[in-house]
Design a protein around this nucleic acid. Sequence first.
DNA 1: ACTCCTTTGTTGACATGTCACCAACATAGC
DNA 2: GCTATGTTGGTGACATGTCAACAAAGGAGT
Lengths: 156, 156
Amino acid sequence: MKPVTEPRWLDERQARAWRGYRRMRALLDLQITRDLAADSGLSDADYDVLSNLSEVSPHRLRLTELAATMLWSKSRLSHHLTRMQQRGLVDREECPGDARGSMIVLTEAGLRAIEEAAPHHVESVRRNMIDLLTEEEIAALDTLSHRVVAHLSGEG
Amino acid sequence: MKPVTEPRWLDERQARAWRGYRRMRALLDLQITRDLAADSGLSDADYDVLSNLSEVSPHRLRLTELAATMLWSKSRLSHHLTRMQQRGLVDREECPGDARGSMIVLTEAGLRAIEEAAPHHVESVRRNMIDLLTEEEIAALDTLSHRVVAHLSGEG
DNA sequence: ACTCCTTTGTTGACATGTCACCAACATAGC
DNA sequence: GCTATGTTGGTGACATGTCAACAAAGGAGT
């Protein structure tokens, strides 16, 4: 009276693809983190924060907005920003029109950091992933990932 | 005298693919972690450890071996095993033939845990990823990921 | 204005991962 | 046997992430 339904195990190719994805994910992460640290002294998290801030017009965002964009919890972001603020990469400003709010601002040093880091980072991404793929594979990855993202964003 | 070479930025499709991959990675992780915790009370890390142990013949591995398979540092694994050991999922035994060594053994409870977790986990993997992809996309992901893994394993 | 509910960002306690270092041991070459 | 060197697993200090609780505002309905 236990087995609800026989589980639909993955077939060989699916299993290979899944394991490959997981392993690529792990190794790629390690390598890109290493490169980033060596080239720029930034962590992945630092780079993400700086990158998102530098991509908006007056280099500033509400904490909540930034957290939503990055798929981070507000708590995690707040903690991390405290550390980045101590290093002078970002700053907190009062939010006009909402006294609770906190505006996260890219500092001069932060801007310089991301501008110096970006070229190296792109090189790393190319070297370790993008340049290893064919046009078709890039297209497939594009389509496939956006479909999965849509699924995961849409429902729970 | 600054710019070494003009960085080879990603073109539009490459950038879309890269961002999509990153976002899929983040969301998929969150979802699978949530499902795993809800269905089995295990973390990703727990599942990985148990899964690797259950896949070898006498359900036991040297710590170093296990760490290498999982791409974890020995330190991380040692810490995590201490916690899992306190929960009764694994055990440490002396290693015959190498007095330094530590054999990591799957306990009865650990075996039961992974056996109960596996079907739910596969369902989650299917629902959130595999079943969303076409045959061709799975094939592409398989090929592509193994090429990247080979690159990252081969050299630094 | 007042109540009720939500949102915002922060904090502290705790879980987890990283790093540098260490003691115990194995192994090779002498 | 003995020494030099590398390996194994563990440890503590610290960096980072998670979670629940919180104070301070905002905002809707009346």
